[in-house]
Design a protein around this nucleic acid. Structure first.
Length: 616
DNA sequence: GATTTCACGTA
DNA sequence: CGTACGTGAAATCC
């Protein structure tokens, strides 16, 4: 490898990980081995970027790149050790010691635990370490207390921390490239996505505060001026429902049990009060419709109301939340503070700022097109050449388009209800390669066999949490677990007990076999879905990374990533050019990702003022 | 106080 | 037509 070849050299940037202390940062690579204050970091990095354009390497962008992003230093190529580890190993856990051990081929089971704080632990850890300042222990594992106050960083330690990052990344690269050449490209785009996530959090989503306030007011009432007023507004809202049930005005609408009783009293007997259970009773009694409308308003009031506006929309009228480049399951991006689940009614409030517009683009029929690509089904690939993929599929099956669409979706996601029967058989005949790909994923899920997406991401099947899935018609969550604490919860939370649940069910005898079968099937559906959803996420991130790189000079900012949709905030004058580059970026990233042009990907891209302007 | 359940928004 | 995620309120556990 030539030392002068741009983009081929690694340079590690690490920021002191120790909470509370700040030894600054270290930069190691291309002949540099330097510790410096955080304030001096951006200038050095910008200079090296201009001269060498190396592959910036860090334990995680969220920590190490944050000061660079804050200083608006823009970097082209990076390697995110945490993301590369998630790709290689699956799941969410990606601490430096774990990533290091995996990159070195060491058993994760042997990971040394950080000292609990007592003297014996401290002594034991020390005994394993070659030298007091060494980051790597004699047994090859990373020192577990690195990054904790038990091992405060100084210049020497920080340099060793950076050197370890370089070695870890090199190990990851070797392993990924050896396992699957495509995984290397995926690691690059996942790393770029992780850096983009830090930029997304910095830039925020432009909001028209006045419109947001108006929409909130129209839905859930005026901004409360006092505790008493707030109660009054709430009571007003509740009264719209309770007026339909005289004598039961004391019902707490926020209590599902009480709501169930209330409904029973008017003859609506339901197992729960979820929306899709109540919907059929809308005409049975006026209270049902009123309740469902109340729920919408209550959602806005509690989750997306004035408090939300105050907490998450800055004085610069930008909505901000934390982003992650991949969840712990299939690898989608996640976002907090409503960025990913803003109710459609509030979308008119997402408005480009003065002198700017949005370029919005979304991938059309992304999942079936991805299926064509990842399965290598030539016939199905041929169908992707149509703007509407379902049209040629319908022709091939000899059915109407809506039937063809339902059949394809049923095949990809696995239906539990309804009937796409005959059309599904037609799919098996017309596209056996694609269908076999889905069947293999399902089977691997059931058997807990190793499974990877097209881009090389390991799909975690050993820790998938599924509650019994035998019940409700649609939308019922099949995964439990706590849900506070971001993507570190549930699935990603580490060694989730696979055992105790089955023990609990053993007492139920014959029931336990049924539960076990239901869990197997749920895992199969998860796996079948994950190879599609995960691959789509990989393509999407490759696209987003390319857009980021190719539109930056136009003053464009990616402000929202929504699974198959990009929202780019750009000066008016650059809008059309940005739009064209979005489409070019899709062609380029799809060609690189699939390795051919067999499968066509399409995007709808428009220039708009408000997010809500686009949805056709 | 922490965890679980219910509910619902987005793709 | 399934999977995934984030959020809040109330219930429940400890």
């Amino acid at each position: 490898m030539s030392l002068t070849a741009r983009g081929n050299e690694r340079v590690a940037v690490v920021v002191d990980p120790t909470p509370g202390s700040a030894a600054g940062a270290a930069v190691v690579g291309v002949g540099l081995a330097q510790c410096l204050a955080l304030d001096d970091l951006p200038r050095l990095v910008a200079q090296v970027e201009a001269e060498q354009a190396p592959r910036w390497t860090w334990w995680s962008a969220a920590h190490d790149a944050r000061p660079l992003v804050a200083a608006r230093v823009s970097l082209a190529r990076c390697w995110d050790i945490a993301e590369a580890h998630r790709l290689a190993a699956g799941g969410w856990q990606a601490s430096p010691p774990l990533a290091w051990a995996t990159a070195r081929g060491l058993e994760p089971e042997g990971l040394p635990q950080p000292a609990a704080g007592d003297l014996f632990d401290f002594g034991a850890a020390d005994a394993e370490t070659a030298a007091p300042d060494a980051v790597v222990r004699a047994d090859g594992y990373l020192r577990p207390e690195a990054g904790s106050p038990a091992w405060p960083m100084d210049s020497a330690r920080l340099l060793a921390w950076a050197q370890a990052a370089l070695e870890c990344a090199a190990g990851q690269e070797d392993r990924l490239a050896g396992a699957d050449p495509r995984a290397l490209a995926t690691a690059h785009s996942e790393s770029a996505a992780a850096l983009l996530c830090v930029e997304l959090e910095r830039d925020g989503l432009p909001v028209d505060r006045g419109t947001a306030e108006r929409l909130i007011r129209e839905s859930s009432g005026p901004r409360p001026t006092s505790e008493g007023h707030a109660r009054e507004v709430r009571a007003q809202r509740d009264a719209q429902v309770l007026r339909h049930v005289p004598g039961r005005e004391s019902t707490d609408l926020r209590n599902p049990l009480q709501v169930r009783e209330l409904l029973a009293s008017v003859g609506v007997v339901v197992p729960n009060t979820r929306k899709w259970v109540l919907a059929p009773f809308r005409d049975t009694h006026a209270v049902v419709d009123a309740l469902l409308e109340w729920r919408k308003a209550e959602r806005i009031a509690t989750t997306y109301g004035y408090g939300w506006l105050a907490a998450h929309v800055g004085s610069d009228d930008r909505l901000r939340g934390a982003w992650t480049a991949c969840d712990g399951a299939a690898g989608r991006m996640t976002a907090q503070n409503g960025l990913h689940n803003l109710p459609a009614t509030l979308r008119p409030a997402i408005t480009a700022h003065a002198g700017h517009v949005f370029v919005r683009a979304d991938l059309g029929q992304i999942e079936p097109r991805v299926l064509a690509a990842v399965s290598g089904d030539r016939a199905f690939a041929a169908a992707t050449r149509a703007d509407d993929l379902y049209a040629p599929v319908a022709t091939a099956l000899g059915v109407e388009r809506p039937i063809a669409k339902v059949a394809v979706l049923a095949a990809m996601y696995g239906q539990r209800s309804g009937a796409a029967g005959e059309a599904l058989k037609g799919l098996e005949r017309a596209y056996p390669t694609a269908m076999a790909y889905l069947d293999r994923a399902y089977a691997a899920g059931v058997r807990r066999a190793p499974l990877r997406t097209f881009g090389g991401r390991a799909i975690p099947l050993d820790q998938v949490l599924t509650q019994d899935s035998g019940g409700s018609p649609t939308g019922e969550p099949t995964r439990g677990g706590p849900h506070h604490g971001g993507p570190t919860s549930a699935l990603h939370g580490g060694p989730i007990s696979a055992g105790h649940e089955s023990e609990r069910h053993d007492r139920e005898g014959a029931d336990s076999a049924a539960r076990s079968a239901a869990r197997d099937a749920a895992r199969g559906r998860f796996a079948r879905n994950a190879v599609i959803q995960g691959a789509a996420a990989e393509l999407f991130k490759a696209w987003a990374a390319t857009v980021r790189a190719t539109t930056r000079e136009l003053g464009a900012q990616i402000v929202l990533c929504l699974h198959d949709e990009l929202l780019v905030h750009v000066p008016e004058d650059s809008a059309e050019q940005t739009r064209e580059r979005l489409l070019t970026a899709l062609d380029d990233s799809a060609r690189r990702w699939t390795g051919s042009t067999e499968v066509r990907f399409v995007a709808d891209a428009s220039i708009i003022q408000r997010w809500s302007d686009a949805k056709a």
